[in-house]
């Protein structure tokens, strides 16, 4: 059974189409990054997964159920970008309150522990830093031991240390096999923590694949090798080669399939010091999500 099954989702606000005929399937245990610029439709899509917004067209199924059923049974939980917390509750009281709403909640100390905030249970929420409040939301989301955890830009406004600690907590938890989908516009977060990246632009998916695939899709890789008298036309004829350039006794090849190029260099030539580097995800992101991107049609769905 699929963890998330979105079929042809469309959501309009007046004349604006926030989500446009979006289809996405996530299998259990996947860690998926939902990456896109502001206003791409990430939060709207997440709101529909959580039943906070009703789609104009299309269907949402979470482990085969509607969002409302999944929420009622605690199978889905979320850490929202700006979910409200009550300032005059302590951290522990907030967790205790939320726990009391579930029939079989995990013990409060356990989720506080896993979110890394056990030491500040007695602190008033209003006195907690942004990072601590976000880890509190994470602790609350863990109470029902959800099968699917959704995080909407969970580290917005956190400092570097806060982000690092937050992701450490998520990462540790993910080893238990929870399905995780997180929205972010921090490319390095998507790169570092997701198995799979779904790139969204103007309410539609423009690319979907592993981090490596996404990078490759946008800008390809660069292969550099030390090689005297290279056969430039043979290199240029290899599958996926975009450009070949000779610089002194080095050769630089831009390509979409670095494996083919490297195999050729190492088996058919005397090339030494072969280096393969990829453009960072930032470049891929910009290329894929900019409005006039020619590459956007290269996006594929799994």
């Amino acid at each position: 059974m699929l963890a998330i099954d979105l079929q042809k989702l469309t959501k309009r606000y007046g004349a604006v189409t926030a989500v446009n005929d979006l289809t996405l399937q996530v299998t259990p245990g996947e860690i998926v990054a939902f990456l896109g610029p502001n206003g791409a439709g990430k939060t709207t899509t997440i709101d529909m997964m959580l039943g906070l917004a009703k789609p104009n067209a299309g269907t949402v199924q979470i482990y085969g159920k509607t969002p409302a059923e999944s929420i009622a049974r605690g199978e889905i939980a979320a850490v929202m970008q700006t979910g409200g917390l009550l300032k005059d509750f302590t951290v522990a009281e907030t967790v205790e309150y939320t726990a009391s709403l579930y029939p079989h909640a995990r013990p409060a100390h356990e989720v506080l522990d896993r979110a890394g905030i056990r030491g500040i249970g007695h602190r008033l929420v209003g006195k907690c830093s942004g990072g601590e409040q976000q880890r509190l939301r994470f602790a609350m989301a863990l109470l029902s031991d959800p099968r699917l955890l959704i995080l909407d830009e969970p580290t917005t406004g956190m400092d570097v240390e806060g982000r690092r600690e937050f992701w450490q907590a998520i990462r540790q938890d993910a080893t238990r096999g929870r399905t995780i989908l997180f929205a972010t516009h921090y490319l390095d977060e998507a790169d570092a923590y997701a198995d799979r990246i779904v790139l969204i632009r103007e309410g539609a998916i423009v690319a979907d694949g592993t981090t490596a695939e996404i990078k490759n899709l946008a800008s390809g890789r660069r292969v550099r090798a030390t090689l005297e008298a290279p056969d430039l036309s043979a290199l240029g004829g290899l599958d996926g080669v975009i450009a070949v350039e000779q610089r002194g006794d080095s050769v630089l090849i831009n390509c979409s399939n670095s494996d083919v190029v490297a195999r050729y260099l190492l088996t058919c030539t005397t090339a030494r010091d072969v280096e393969i580097s990829s453009q960072n995800l930032e470049a891929a992101f910009v290329a894929l999500t900019s409005k006039d991107s020619a590459l956007s049609t290269a996006g594929h769905s799994r």
Partner: peptide, 12 residues
Amino acid sequence: LGWSRQLRLTPL
């Protein structure tokens, strides 16, 4: 404050 929205993610 958005607390009600937070609660909508629970069975309450």
